[in-house]
Design a protein around this nucleic acid. Structure first.
Lengths: 218, 218
DNA sequence: GGGTGTGAAGCCGTTCACAGCA
DNA sequence: TGCTGTGAACGGCTTCACACCC
């Protein structure tokens, strides 16, 4: 049932599919069986055309004019986004941010699971936090190999983040999400996303300031 | 010294300015006084042209050909990004994510400060966590008014996030960063950024899967 | 009429290519 | 020569406009 995959799906569309899916799941739980493009769009503050275009890009179309079948669409998005096998993730840095991410995330998706944490704190190493076993960072390569981990989430202090790059590469990690403020460069072949919380705060602050100074029309 | 501000600066450029600034500050600490565009670019995994274009857009240019003067450039970016007065922020949801954000952020920037937290947990309300006083969410409007808070960071459980929208609007908040998975719609006039951690994880997972299935050239 | 699917146009951000300057 | 500044080309994403279908 996986669509033949025509041509590459844009990054932005992938992001929105992930968001659509969450809304659709929540609709499904509420017993909603069909949904119009403009309703789905409204939930996300975007236009109906945008939604329809995204669905077109993934090759989805509804046969009926009563809106999209929620259950069918969820399945379709699952087929696009989810990997066949469960994808295993590791958290590097099991401080408050690491724990927050773990508890926000685990259990939410069937095809992704945070299976290991890494830290240097001797009070954490060797224990399990929120049911996630915590290892010393030095054993990254072995554990990644043993547990078949493909993605690493960096939630360590910013200062130690740069020193993680080489170990992560050597461990054979395929994807990285970096939540620290240190911009990290990984070689071609590793999917990396820098997701710096400080930057968002500063960005919002800037546009608030701008709105205040200028266009704040009555 | 604030530049006359020609025409609106793109969102993406603002994000990068925030990132450049952090790198420049770290260069400055190390005693580096001048930096070439291609060096700065390399730190962020982008091209030198991109850096120069960004600086062009904010009206910065170097008189010397020995690279950009680090200190001068930092000051220039400060003038763009920072507000004149300190901007006060509130955290809504003082769980692990809220605490993590607070400790990651506070003290980092002179012109932004997290000054209050809101929660419903009676063991938290009335106390101070990491030196941030914690109030009950019901007193949002009063505290926002009293403390002159303009930005709210939502780090509550996803399930309660939708119920925060109206109180936030009524409290007169000007900017919102939403870290939950619930897409929130705020009216025109409020700067809002949805910053969903789950989406990033799913996005990276997708592109890892894609790289695995297709182009993984030797 | 109210909704969907989609070519074509438009917009925005990045990259190219090159002029100018020490 | 090596770096900066920038008009122009390019490419990706969004929006317009409209055909089609219940």
């Amino acid at each position: 049932m996986t669509p033949p995959i025509t041509h590459p799906i844009p990054k932005k569309t992938i992001e929105r599919l992930s968001e659509y899916r969450r809304s659709l799941l929540s609709c499904h739980e509420q017993g909603i069986t069909h949904i119009f493009s403009h309703i789905l769009a409204g939930m996300h503050g975007i236009t109906a055309v945008q939604v329809r275009r995204d669905l077109m890009l993934i090759g989805f179309s509804s046969d009926t004019k009563k809106g999209y079948d929620v259950k069918v669409l969820i399945e379709f998005i699952n087929n696009i986004l989810d990997s066949r096998e469960v994808m295993n993730l590791a958290i590097i840095g099991m401080g408050r941010l690491g724990q927050a991410i773990t508890s926000y995330f685990n259990g939410k998706r069937r095809k992704m699971r945070i299976v290991a944490a890494f830290d240097v704190d001797p009070t954490k190493v060797g224990t399990a936090i929120d049911n996630i076993p915590c290892y010393h960072i030095d054993s990254l390569a072995e554990v990644v190999e043993q547990m078949d981990i493909s993605i690493a989430v960096i939630s360590s202090p910013t200062s130690v983040a740069p020193s993680l790059v080489v170990p992560i590469i050597n461990a054979g990690i395929k994807g990285v999400i970096n939540f620290t403020s240190a911009p990290l460069n990984f070689p071609q072949g590793i999917v990396a996303e820098n997701y710096d919380i400080t930057t968002v705060l500063e960005k919002v602050a800037y546009f608030v300031k701008e709105a205040d100074e200028n266009g704040d029309k009555s």
